[in-house]
Structures are given as structure tokens and as C-alpha cells.
Design a binder for these strands. Structure first.
Lengths: 230, 230
DNA sequence: GTGGCAATTTTATATGACAAATTTCACACG
DNA sequence: CGTGTGAAATTTGTCATATAAAATTGCCAC
């Protein structure tokens, strides 16, 4: 999806610069001027400015005439932007942010599951079931199993009917895809098919409380797993 | 904060175009080409492209050579970007999104309050108290009272120690500031000072469960208020 | 030393030119 | 009549250069 993002110079610079910023490559130094950036990366001012503007839109940079471009305080970075979160999670020693993200999921997904039980969006619920069945079917294949796990969780967000929950899809996608590097295992999904099924059944039965409990159980487990990683 | 965003041409176009997109001004029509946009808004290609790139960074647009620029499906809009959410809430008939946002707060803030009770960040807790006291002190002044209410809630997010929660600050700021237009009243904060105090006290006592319950009570009330608006 | 003016630095904007990608269209050929 | 092939057209992507505007720095007069 959106493969063109990788190819154009502007999007390439977006990624390169974004990663450099979050990994702290510019810490201490003053951020380069446009001219220096162009020189360093061999790009024209046009594309460099477009990249800087995109990073500004994500809260990482800000520019002012005569003063130059600065890296914004981390508090202003838009953590909830898929690119930003991905860059943060890709860098070494990212345990902390994985843990914090898991904690946020723990706040959101059980509520989403409860809502899904109330809303009863049949099509979306069918997608949750598809995810679960794919998890079962792919219990051998790690790669496909992870994707099925992801599909299951994001389908619940969709079934909640709330677009704010649904919008976490790309974040969860990134986080779970990358979490393997951290835990060296597929978030234990094969072990927890029963737990996942409990969520689905509760949603299908319209039992909001049970759905919430079951979802919470899954996430507490995965949070526990992440917390074992030092 | 960031006053320059209002003045420069690029940021002006960002806002104008962003609002036009979310209010559906381009629905049905094909999105204009760069040349047409420049013509229409009297801007140079340089700034127009920078504005389009920023909107692309927020998920509203995407461009491809020869094919032109298109508005992305709503599902791809980054709802969790402060600008995008603000544009959506500013448009007429935005009840739905206010309700959905309140629902998300209901998932997050009680968890944040519980975490705050556990973490015991003294400085952040002091800010929660500051917010509450400002709410009491400003019970006459609507404007200041709202700001105090906002400060109270975002201070809890900060006290949770989780940057994902903390990142909701600008969203909540926007939402509460704008909610007056919707409900024609200051989210009933004067009436609920006791409820707010209950949250603070629970956090100070390190009682996570009580903090969660009390926070949930406040948010259920404000959600109820929003739901009365047709 | 102090106020103000001038020089300097850096981003902001404008314009023109060409490159690259992708669709459209016409034409030749079977 | 279909079909593929290549040329033309369209639109964004990239580059280079010039000028404007803002804000800092420094100098100079008083």
C-alpha cells in the first residue's frame, strides 16, 4: 500500500531524516540549515523543504525565518502518527516505547471489544472470526500466524464502530510486526487461541462485559511478555 | 504557541485546504491539479506543493505522477492529528465525532488516572491539584473555568507517565475548546467539582481503582451531555 | 552604555525549465 | 475488426536561481 512513498526523493528524505531525528543523531548539535541538509544529502532545496515540511506536520521539526530549523521537544512529536511511531520502535533500545504502547492498547482494546459486543456489526464481526480462523489454520507458519493475530485485533477495533479506535490499525500493525525483533517470538499467539476465541464468542453473544474481560486478559499477557524484556 | 503557523502562506494553505477537504467541498469533483490550485488560491507552485505535502503527511491526500492528487479515503485520515481532528470538529454537524471522541476519552482517561495513582509523580499530581483549584477559583468566569477543567484532565494524562496518553493533550484541548459551540455550555464543570476532587484524592492516596471509577464517572456524565445534542 | 541603523543570515516565496511516469490515442499490422 | 506498439499529452517530481521577509548581530554615533 502506497509503494510510491518509498521511491520519491521527498519521501525518501522524510524517512531518512525522521529516523535520524528520533535516533538522536542531531542531539547536541544544532540542526543543519537547509543549505547544509541539501549538501549533505545531495538533494535540491525543493525536495528538502518538502521533507522538512512533512516532518513539521508530524511535530518533529519547526522552522522560522533567520533562526533556522529546530527539532521540537519530544512532547510535541506526534507519537500517534504511524511513521513517527515506527521510527521510534525501529531504533535500538526501544523496549520502553513498546511497553508504553502495550499499556495504551490495554486501555483501548477492551473498551473496543465491549463496544463491538454492543454494536453488533455483522460484517466486522465476521472479519474477527476470519482472523481467528486464520490464526488456527496458520499455527505452523510464524509469519502468517502473526498477520492473522494482527487482523484479529484490528477487526475488533473496526467492529467497535468508533473511528478513533479504528485509526490505531496502522500503529498496531507496525508495533506487532516489529515486536518480533524485541521478544524474539510471535507474541505467543499460538498459545492463546483459546483466549482469542473467548473474546470473539463474547462479542458474538453481545456480552460486553465478558468481551472486555477476555480482551483485557489477552493484553495483560502480552504486556507481561514485553515487560520481561530488559 | 507556534503562532507562525497562522501567518506563512504554506501554513495558511494547509489550513484552508484541510478545512475544505474535511467539509467535503471537493466531493464528487476530481481534486484540482497543482496548476489549478495555484490559480485558484493565487499561490506559487512551491508553497502549494508544500501544503499538499503536509496534508499528505496527515493522510488526507496522496499524489502520483501523471494521475494527479487525490483525497484519501476517510479511513486513512489521521484522526489523531490535532489539525485534522480540529478541522473535523469545526465543521457543521460534527456531533458524531464529538461523541466518538468522548467515547475514546472514556477508554483512556480512567486508565490514565489509575496509572497516575500508581506512578505517584508528585510534580504532575501537583498540576492536577492546580487545575482543580483553578476550577474552584474561577467558578464565575466561564472561559477561565473551561481552561482549568482542561488543565485538570491533561494533567492526569501527564501524571500517568505514558507518553501516548500525554499526547492526547492537544486533541483534548481542541475538543473541549470547541465543545462549547456544540453544547452551548461549559461541559458542566462547575457542577462536578466534587467529582473532579474525588479523582484527585484517589490519585493522591494511590488508590488506582477509586481513581479509575471516579474518572469514569466524570466522563460518563460528559458523554451523556454530548449525547443529548441531536 | 545605549539607542538605533545597517549588515548578515536563514527561511519563505516565486518562476522557469526539464525529467519521469502513466495514460491516451492513433496507426500499422495481422 | 482486433491488437499491439509507439508517439503524444498530461501531471507530478526535481532542479536551479532569484528575490523577499524576518530576526539577529554588530557597529556607530551620541
Amino acid at each position: 500500500m502506497r509503494s510510491e512513498h518509498g521511491v520519491s526523493l521527498a519521501y525518501g528524505l522524510l524517512k531518512t531524516l525522521g529516523q535520524s531525528i528520533v535516533t538522536g543523531e542531531f542531539d547536541g548539535k544544532t540542526f543543519p540549515t537547509e543549505a547544509e541538509l541539501c549538501q549533505h544529502y545531495g538533494a535540491s532545496r525543493t525536495v528538502m523543504r518538502e521533507a522538512v515540511k512533512m516532518l513539521s506536520a508530524k511535530g518533529l521539526l519547526s522552522s522560522r525565518q533567520r533562526q533556522g530549523t529546530r527539532i521540537e521537544p519530544v512532547d510535541n512529536w506526534n507519537l500517534l502518527d504511524p511513521d513517527v511511531l515506527r521510527w521510534l520502535m525501529e531504533r535500538p533500545f526501544s523496549n520502553k516505547i513498546f511497553r508504553e504502547f502495550a499499556q495504551m492498547r490495554l486501555a483501548i482494546e477492551p473498551t473496543a471489544a465491549a463496544l463491538a459486543a454492543e454494536v453488533q456489526d455483522k460484517r466486522a464481526i465476521a472479519q474477527i472470526r476470519d482472523g481467528l480462523e486464520a490464526m488456527i489454520a496458520t499455527s505452523g507458519d510464524q509469519e502468517a500466524g502473526l498477520q492473522a493475530d494482527i487482523d484479529f485485533h484490528v477487526a475488533i477495533l473496526k467492529a467497535s464502530g468508533n473511528p478513533f479506535f479504528w485509526r490505531l490499525k496502522p500503529l498496531i500493525n507496525n508495533a506487532l510486526q516489529l515486536s518480533i525483533q524485541l521478544t524474539n517470538q510471535i507474541s505467543g499467539h499460538t498459545a492463546s487461541i483459546a483466549a482469542h476465541e473467548a473474546v470473539l464468542v463474547a462479542i458474538e453473544h453481545g456480552d460486553a462485559d465478558a468481551a472486555k474481560q477476555a480482551s483485557e486478559a489477552i493484553l495483560r499477557d502480552s504486556l507481561k511478555l514485553i515487560e520481561t524484556v530488559k
